[in-house]
Design a protein around this nucleic acid. Structure first.
Lengths: 229, 229, 229, 229
DNA sequence: GATGAATGAGTTTTCATTCAT
DNA sequence: AATGAATGAAAACTCATTCAT
């Protein structure tokens, strides 16, 4: 489990009711982002949370801050999953990979597009979490390579990308079918992870090249945040 | 190749200049959607296209109509790719699958999220195109199964889903890196397609179950269209 | 009968098809004004008339010109009614008044608010028609006074005002009920026209005072043209 | 006097400043509707009221809501007038009718086309007010019939219609002349109300037939609201 | 003479954000 | 700390009017 509370920034100094408001706003934001994109009117989020818009603003300076908080929440969950999977890596590395990715898929409604595919945030806390996630995954892969259980040319970044691909919703499909189809894709992918591979993967970008982009930087979202407003 | 011009709806009865404007608007919309999401101000699209906003409205009744047109354009391209790949399926089915999926990735800037993952449209023309794409892919897979070149439990829908996953941009990454990482994911996936599979895929939804959703229905886009406005 | 064709400006020099277009536009305008007010989009009038908006503009320079034409058409009808009634004034003056006012009510869908209450126009032709109407009505009243059949303090302007009041639609009521209620009001009014009057009317504005306003001038419409656009 | 403040909807739960704004907007709307019709740009109303357009929208969801509020305000005034007149009915019924109708004319700038002739609203509050007005007028007429001071075939609806006819502005005429001419028409009408009538009125629509239309229903305004936009 | 097309100039409407209570 | 209220600034959408075919 991650050391910090999954919700992100310590809500320590908040009055009880204020803390409850904050949690409700985060939860409402998650749902609203999921249903209507990160460009939903903040007023709708406030309404869902049952608080006044001004209260939302007191808690989160602006839309970006709110997005960041939601993303960090998701990263916390992802980190928990990665570390949890890493603990089982010695016994069965590929099962650990599967466990991580399945866990990601199962809680993708909580993640709300964290990882790379999701809403932009350059919050330092988010960066740190991403770094820790990569480390845990690398640990799993190292174990896999040592046991010749996983093809050697796969990296932690590949797993993160895979998680990003799989977690993004297929908006036209009902949840259950989307889950099934995603699981099928994952099944094929996991089979492809075995070391008796038949094809060579293109050289991955170096970690350095990637570092900046894995985190902040300028984003070009396709379906994305659209206007920042 | 598809019979219809890749541009989608027959621009038949349009005056020459009007047809040119229409094409420019579509192209501008594609680019703008790609960069800023489908919620970009229509005025920016008009500006990019070098026409007045009212001209855009004369051609496309509203944002949804414009999105539908862009999607249909993308579906046309996807159909061309699927049919083109199907022609080579007899020689090497798995190469045909690879050809289709690479083609999708390479032209994802033209597709602008068509297939399942993309912006919603229930245009009947879009439905028809989706149906034709599925048919061409099924043809490839049938050939693959006959030659024992492709695992038997994979369906056309799996390929469509895969294309949808791979085509969606990783907004935080520069184009080149995104392409590389996507190609790596694809490499693993293709290896997983081989028939000597080690794991069983969950039962796919029946075509009937899927049919409705592959097309219209209620959408819940995450980063998606955001508010319809 | 009025000398000129009721349609207003002689459509003499128009090609046959152009003349037909002009008539269709006028008719469409009448209906549209009646249903949706004089601020209806001109494009809707064109659509109703089955012609292109540019054709409408070729025929009528702008909204005001179109309104004027419709009003003049109505004035022509009113003048016909007044003259027709005047012919019967000698036999029964008050019946002549009744005939005129009923005739106005019956054809109010053709009048589209001409007279004073209606859409503004300062077309000289309209002024002339108004003058002629007043003259015919005065003729009736003179006869009525001579026979002591009509109270002496009523003037042609009173009748015009009455026609204006009665012709304006009661938009919330179905046609039939509106007609009945208007007829009832008219009945009471006609009874009040008898010479054995019990009350004194306030002094009417002099013809000079009125002249300008009976015609053009600045208008302040209440439900009126609204924005000139 | 009516129990409710003439301003209509109880501004109860509004903050003091907000209530003041609301009143200013209503007043500005009344004036603007009067001068330029109910299709005036809402922005102009906001400007007159000295508030931002968004403030207007916060108070009134759209043009129709604003119109309804203005109409209700007018109905409140009309009800006050009717009840006030009813109190004097015993002494002189016809004077009470006159008092009501004159009162309507005098405050027609406050009414802004309430009653039947005016802008459409199907607000339940408006319906109730209309019903109460009719009741008060019927009371007057009953008294009149009892004293043989008013012809027996006249109903409350006739008086409402008369008020509607008289209150609608004659837009081409300056206020003073319009008032004089309206007063002259009223004079004749009142003389026609006397019981020694010479003509029979057409059968009035039953209250039931009328009920629905006196209130909501589909409207077809001539100069009216014009497009709803 | 007629029309498809284009556009400039509004108008309505919606938000993010700030302020005063 | 929470909220009702206000607002500036952007969009979306609509029209009258003109132009080129």
């Amino acid at each position: 489990m991650s050391a910090r509370p999954a919700g992100g920034r310590p809500a320590s100094r908040l009055r009880t009711d204020a803390a409850r408001n904050r949690a409700q706003i985060l939860s409402a934001a998650r749902g609203a982002f999921l249903e209507s994109g990160t460009a939903v009117p903040l007023e709708e989020i406030a309404r869902r949370a049952g608080v006044n818009i001004a209260t939302l603003y007191r808690r989160f300076a602006n839309r970006d801050a709110l997005i960041a908080a939601v993303v960090i929440e998701g990263f916390g969950i992802a980190l928990d999953a990665a570390r949890s999977a890493a603990k089982t890596a010695q016994a069965d590395p590929i099962a650990a990979v599967e466990s991580f990715l399945r866990s990601m898929i199962d809680s993708r409604h909580l993640l709300v597009l964290p990882l790379i595919g999701g809403p932009q945030t350059d919050d330092p806390e988010a960066r740190e979490l991403q770094h820790d996630i990569a480390a845990a995954l690398e640990e799993i892969l190292a174990e896999g390579r040592r046991h010749h259980a996983v093809r050697a040319d796969v990296t932690a970044v590949d797993l993160i990308i895979t998680a990003a691909l799989l977690c993004r919703p297929l908006p036209h499909l009902p949840h259950e079918q989307a889950t099934t189809l995603t699981a099928r894709h994952l099944g094929v992918f996991l089979d492809g992870l075995r070391p008796d591979r038949s094809r060579t993967l293109p050289r991955p970008p170096s970690t350095e090249e990637l570092a900046d982009h894995l985190h902040g930087g300028t984003a070009a979202t396709v379906e994305g945040q659209a206007r920042k407003r």
